[in-house]
Design a binder for these strands. Structure first.
Lengths: 341, 341
DNA sequence: TCGTAGATTGGGAGCGCTCCCAGTATTAAT
DNA sequence: ATTAATACTGGGAGCGCTCCCAATCTACGA
């Protein structure tokens, strides 16, 4: 199982390098008999074309990068990202692409990773998880390098890039509407960071809904979180004095933190305070009180991003496209729906 | 910012391709002045050598693969793996390697991924997360292909491969000893799968400790889980009839499931049943009762794996090596230590 | 049977880099 | 100033593949 080359296979099959290349790449114009013979030799020898040589000659690496900027350094504290990664990996397998993962941990990493991501001969395209102000730089970088690019999440400047997202405003609105419908009077919210589009959009959905329902928007019922459990916990503590009877948290993990704070304050869920989260990741059903939440199709999200990217790579069409996926309100216990109707 | 080549830079700097190559690769034997000049041109033009060409010529890709076999399909249900991935990614950044992620979801994926992982010109080496019976095949594959390899976790047949692990037997023993020390009489355990080395080893630590302390080992106090929250939940339900007063769960996530089951059964934690988990991931402190657990250095684990691998790649020394990292018992509330002493 | 369009096939010319070797410049010692 | 080391530098020969084009076959109709 030494290092075989096309030429070796060609010799063994009694054909030329070119013919072997054709059968490997499934080109037409190879006689059936010849194709069989070559295929046989390839199978017998366990030959696989050298990836680097192929990339150099064809200018296609068949690998895409997934870039997780510094802004998602709480990356592995919110299970959302691993799930997204899984969806992307899955799609890569399906389309026979290799996935390169770039996790930006520190500022120094950033400098090392920037050039590597845009370097020729490594990646055919990249998916970047974005939506924070800080992400604009890397996006600009990639656009300048004419690297096929799809953004996961809506970036702040979205005019010239393709992205996949959900309708965060309306999804949040449906969560808050649900709470209004259940008769809660003092509905609070724990938002995502104000320097992120997700954070802003979900908050907008909250504000919009209250206004539409003729409610006033009370700042003491709004606290900013950072998509961590601890962030949710502290935000809830800030909300507590305002005595909310329901809280919409912009992520499940923050909802869990918030519920912890509520319980510690001696409050009963959902009787004293109801909660609705966002994401519907497995953790939503993991706590002793099942979380009502907005389900977003995370895996689909990843798959779509890959599909958009591959289309861009293979057709060369870089017209910005956007895909907005549907969400769904999943009613469980934490909103108190069962006992209120 | 078109596609520049060494030759282009050479021309602009008035030197030869070879000289540019030398400065790019930091070789000695380039006059200081010349080096400066070339560096300047490189900076001005934003040149980065083509990765594929470099790989083809040098037979080194500077990328390593992380392979997560099918056996870890609950991959993103146990936060352990994302953390491991993070450690690995971090080390890759540090050593200037690119990380390729291979997530085996389905059996079909496996067939697509096998050749890709061992194909020449793509990876310099691979880290495979292993420890299940099913993982032997891919390991054999990789060994046959003479691919530098490090296993994360102890594989079943560990004689001819390098791996990183913790001392699961003793770590588990220290958890159980702690429970014994606190005076619990009916200590149960929720093990990992019996077809995994981790599952087996941690159970062995449990059994060993009880025997050393002159306790009998009661099968009705042992239930097998699968490292998921649901698995822990069901395992606990099986344990309940045996009336354990303490339970050692082989992972935090299973401990959380188990505690949910206990609470549903009306039991108080830790007064009626105490719990010790394993991992000390962020979730350990996320529930309303803080989990006593065994801390394992997950990030370190990833870093070590990368270091072993890179050493193997760069020195060519494939003598199997093993690194066993230390663990630590972290005492919090769930074991009831505070109220029992 | 012959000619020809169309199907196959082979080989050359790179892709952009590294590595080796031979040549040239530089330095230090005489 | 001369010579022998020593320090640099340039260019050729690939790495293993794809792609193009020219050459060879094949099959079919006249």
């Amino acid at each position: 199982m030494a290092d075989l080359t096309l030429e070796d296979i060609a010799k063994q099959a009694g054909v030329s390098r070119s013919t072997v290349s054709r059968v490997v790449n499934n080109h037409p114009n190879v006689r059936g008999k010849v194709r069989q013979r070559v295929l046989q030799v390839i199978e017998d020898t366990g030959f696989h074309p050298n990836a680097a040589a192929r990339t150099l000659a064809s200018q296609r690496s068949w690998t895409i990068g997934l870039l997780l900027p510094h802004s998602v350094s709480f990356f592995f504290t919110d299970p959302y990202y691993p799930h997204l990664t899984k969806g992307i990996a899955q799609a890569c397998n399906q389309y026979n692409y290799t996935l390169a993962l770039f996790l930006v941990g520190t500022k120094e990493d950033e400098e090392k990773i920037f050039p590597r991501v845009s370097r020729k001969g490594l990646l055919d395209g990249v998916i970047v998880q974005a939506g924070h102000h800080g992400d604009q730089e890397i996006i600009g970088h990639l656009v300048d390098a004419a690297m096929p690019l799809v953004v996961a999440g809506r970036p702040f400047r979205s005019d010239n890039v393709s992205y996949v997202d959900i309708d965060n405003v309306n999804a949040a609105a449906s969560a808050v509407s649900h709470l209004v419908r259940l008769g809660y009077q003092r509905i609070g919210t724990i938002t995502g960071p104000a320097n992120s589009t997700v954070g802003l959009d979900r908050k907008e959905g909250y504000v919009k809904t209250l206004k539409e329902r003729g409610r006033s928007v009370d700042d003491s019922l709004i606290a900013e979180g950072d998509f961590t459990e601890a962030g949710g916990y502290y935000a809830m503590q800030k909300l507590l004095p305002a005595r909310p009877d329901a809280v919409f948290a912009a992520s499940d993990i923050m909802a869990i933190g918030a519920m912890r704070a509520a319980r510690e304050a001696g409050l009963n869920i959902p009787d004293d305070v109801a909660f609705v989260g966002f994401d519907d990741l497995p953790i939503a059903t993991l706590s002793n009180i099942q979380l009502t939440t907005i389900r977003q199709p995370v895996i689909q999200f990843g798959v779509k991003a890959v599909e958009l990217l591959i289309d861009q790579i293979e057709t060369g069409n870089t017209t910005p496209r956007r895909v907005i996926l549907d969400t769904e309100l999943v009613i469980r216990e934490s909103c108190g729906a069962s006992r209120r109707k």
